[in-house]
Nucleic acid binder design. Structure first.
Lengths: 185, 185
DNA sequence: CTTGTCTATGCAACGAGTTGCATAGAAGGA
DNA sequence: TCCTTCTATGCAACTCGTTGCATAGACAAG
């Protein structure tokens, strides 16, 4: 229900086409809110017909023309309203947690390689976040003049980093547990 | 796609009715995988017609009769198969992260009370987890005889605890950032 | 020269998830 | 007495999300 709002934020940060939004959702924003290009195109259509966003046809050479979207006044208002509404604790879906509890009824040791794969994925994502932090949030200007947008993007990124570190520590705990159960067997 | 599997795990841990499953999803399991009673009843129907689970009508006094479900052999097999399939890094939806980035285009200070509400919710959930851990995973037998199911439930619970602690630390960071931006204003 | 990848947009169909409503008896409080 | 809450199940309608497929030009590698 908040894909519209995620798109509004992304377009306020920088106008762009549906395709570009889809790429952003794959990279930065998608780590906190994911969406496929189909979803994005459909929602952009609706937002446009609701007057939340404006379109501009941008002709290009050597590639198809694109439609660049930017946020209109009603879209800004809709975002402001959403920001003032309370939201509920998000609904989580931890497949891995379900699998771990399920492993009690199968072979726990068989999960080890799966958990190791996840460990690797989180290691990669952490490295990606840290590289982004070094690139975008270090240097002399950082901290001198407080830019709200920059500060807020940084605190969200710090959240991503904290999440990945927590996950890695937990996955180590899970692996140790699985090895213990496998060995006692 | 894995609600079936979450239900299978829950029914293997303890058979029960749709209503009981819905309550479990509200409490323990729902912190890692949430579902409404409508979804559960619908999926139970499908699982029953697929032969994954068995039903038993249980008459009761002073309350409506219930249908107690338990896992049949094909259900166990389906779960085992799923456990051996790799799963992708779960898709996340952090509304709050979107709101925080969106606050750059509104009043950051207006988010403070919202973030404080989330802080409170996570404090409560952490307390709930810790109480559960004290209740179910302490005492003389804990650690002496390694029971796989118990150990695996405990490691999942430790994950929940680690998650809540990480969130609380991050929300403190977010609050400090919002206060800094509000004060500089 | 064909195959594959990248940009760019979109339809159609299906499956998953949400919301509102309905039933119905028992228990407990205002 | 009436109102609400709890147990227990379910239908209907709707929106959201996913998957498969299609188009189409440009470019690079084999």
């Amino acid at each position: 229900m908040a894909l519209e709002h995620a798109i509004l934020v992304s377009l306020l940060e920088k106008p762009g086409s549906g395709y570009e939004l889809a790429r952003r959702f794959e990279r930065s924003i998608g780590y906190f809110w994911n969406a496929t290009h189909q979803q994005i195109y459909r929602v952009l259509k609706r937002m446009e017909s609701d007057g939340w966003i404006d379109v501009r046809e941008v002709p290009q050479q050597a590639r198809p023309d694109k439609k660049e979207y930017s946020v209109a006044a009603p879209g800004r208002a809709a975002l402001a309203q959403w920001l003032h509404e309370p939201i509920e604790p998000e609904s989580v879906r931890h497949d891995l947690a379900v699998k771990i509890r399920g492993a009690a009824f199968d072979d726990p040791a068989a999960l080890i390689s799966e958990v190791e794969r996840h460990h690797q994925a989180h290691t990669d994502r952490l490295a990606h976040y840290l590289a982004g932090e070094r690139r975008d949030f270090t240097g002399p200007e950082a901290g001198a003049v407080p830019d709200a947008g920059r500060e807020l993007q940084h605190v969200v990124l710090r959240g991503g980093i904290a999440y990945e570190r927590m996950m890695l520590a937990w996955l180590d705990d899970v692996l140790a547990t699985l090895h213990r159960l496998g060995g006692a067997h």
